[in-house]
Design a protein around this nucleic acid. Structure first.
Lengths: 252, 252
DNA sequence: CGGCGGCTTGAAGGACGTCAAGATTAGTGG
DNA sequence: CCACTAATCTTGACGTCCTTCAAGCCGCCG
């Protein structure tokens, strides 16, 4: 497990996922399900590879896309972390999500045909660019690609819905930590110890409360032996208690 | 304008939208954009018609689908109102949305492959059923159908995102009223006077606050001459003031 | 007429936000 | 390696918006 590398401090310490080859994508990629099953048309798969562009690195604060840019592509995060956020008319920011390697951003731009939010790298970040018109054409030819696109879109509705529930700060933060743990685990990292790549302010904004509340709730969790926090290093000590706290937030 | 009919009280008073014919769907339907433009393959269009099943009526409280049902179809509301809601582990309800004629429900079930929420008729309701496997096959053949599905899915992400913002009760309720007004207007009804088909409790639950708060905010709006409320009849008096209140909730 | 669900209104309490001050960490240049 | 500065984070005190609890009202249907 390359955890130690992940926890390092140099930019190179958040490695790019494996590159894959002509027939296999980066194994953590959201499009991996398209490639893994047997019997996929190898020619079509090669086409999928053809239309991917590797882009990066983006430095902290740099934008993959910005609100109002014309929609032309969706992006899969290859390494690093991307934050999506929107700025309302009053100038207040609203963090919509943190996107880890393998996750796809930009799907919410298909309908408006412009990106409805900013996508900002919050550490050194690499992405794969999928031209959407090209992808749509491929989807019409390869059922599995179409199906995967439908699934990714549908899953995003579910994610957005989760955030919309009205829940206490404890519930939300417990769910947030468990969600991150699950997603890291799905990528082969530890599901108990991980590094927060985002600031408290960003977490607070994402969960819709004040930065101070993040500090206070984390302290409460720590006092109750649920977690161990050292700066941005997190260790989950009592998963079942955390799950009990988060249980009211429908997950999946 | 068939507003008077819409405001009537008999079950028959919420009429089914026009039925369309072989080449044109009900004009308010979410799939109308597929049919309206010139040059659409008429044979394919007929196929789309073939796979639609008209279902109903559902009486108040009856379910179009329920949480955990295996996903097989999406539905367009043809007449009436559908409420989607989920029940969390603690047994508390959460209203996800109110769906008016022409709007599509069930898209969030594609990924989990089971419906992640209940869809309940809150008045006498008719729907169109689209078998999803059949629709996916058609989408691969007819680019416009695929595109429309992508758009509907993407738009739903946006809608879910809106609800997720943290906003004051005034902001949320103003946005809610304006949103309803827009949607009724898009269906040919008045954008200033309409009938709330849902209870205060449901509105409150949808907006993530207590039922009492709905009453209090509506009263405040009325005292400030922004709206006129008579039971469930609503008249918007000062649209620009309401828009100013709601302005921080990103719309589209 | 009586009962019940839906709605309104008031009073009290609580969860979280805001403000302010300090502590800790990270980043930078000497 | 250290000094200095800025950013991030923590903690406390206080205020506020909204919830909760409780009571009463309205309209509808049996």
């Amino acid at each position: 497990m390359n955890e130690p590398v992940f926890f390092g401090k140099l930019p190179s310490a958040n490695p790019i996922a494996d590159d894959g080859d002509d027939l296999h994508f980066c194994s953590t990629c959201a499009f991996a399900p398209v490639c893994l099953p047997e019997g996929v048309d190898k020619h079509a798969l090669r086409e999928l590879h053809m239309l991917v562009e590797h882009v990066g690195p983006f430095r902290t604060g740099e934008a993959i896309f910005r609100t109002g840019d014309r929609f032309a592509a969706i992006y899969a995060v290859r390494g690093g972390t991307v934050q999506t956020r929107l700025v309302d008319d009053a100038g207040r920011e609203q963090v919509l999500g943190f996107h880890l390697p393998g996750e796809v951003i930009g799907l919410n731009a298909i309908h408006p045909e412009i990106y409805p939010c900013d996508a900002i790298a919050i550490e050194s970040t690499y992405v794969c660019r999928f031209s959407f018109p090209a992808l749509a054409i491929l989807a019409a030819k390869v059922p599995r690609v179409q199906q995967q696109l439908f699934r990714l879109l549908s899953a995003d509705i579910g994610k957005a819905t989760q955030l919309a529930g009205d829940h206490s700060a404890d519930e939300r933060l417990a769910a947030f930590l468990l969600d991150l743990a699950d997603r890291y685990a799905a990528r082969g990292f530890s599901d108990r110890r991980f590094h927060l790549t985002m600031t408290r302010v960003d977490i607070a904004n994402y969960l819709r409360f004040a930065a101070e509340t993040v500090s206070r709730v984390l302290r409460r969790f720590q006092d109750r032996q649920l977690v161990l926090i050292t700066g941005r290093e997190v260790e989950l000590l009592d998963l079942s208690a955390l799950r009990r706290l988060a249980r009211n937030i429908s997950r999946r």
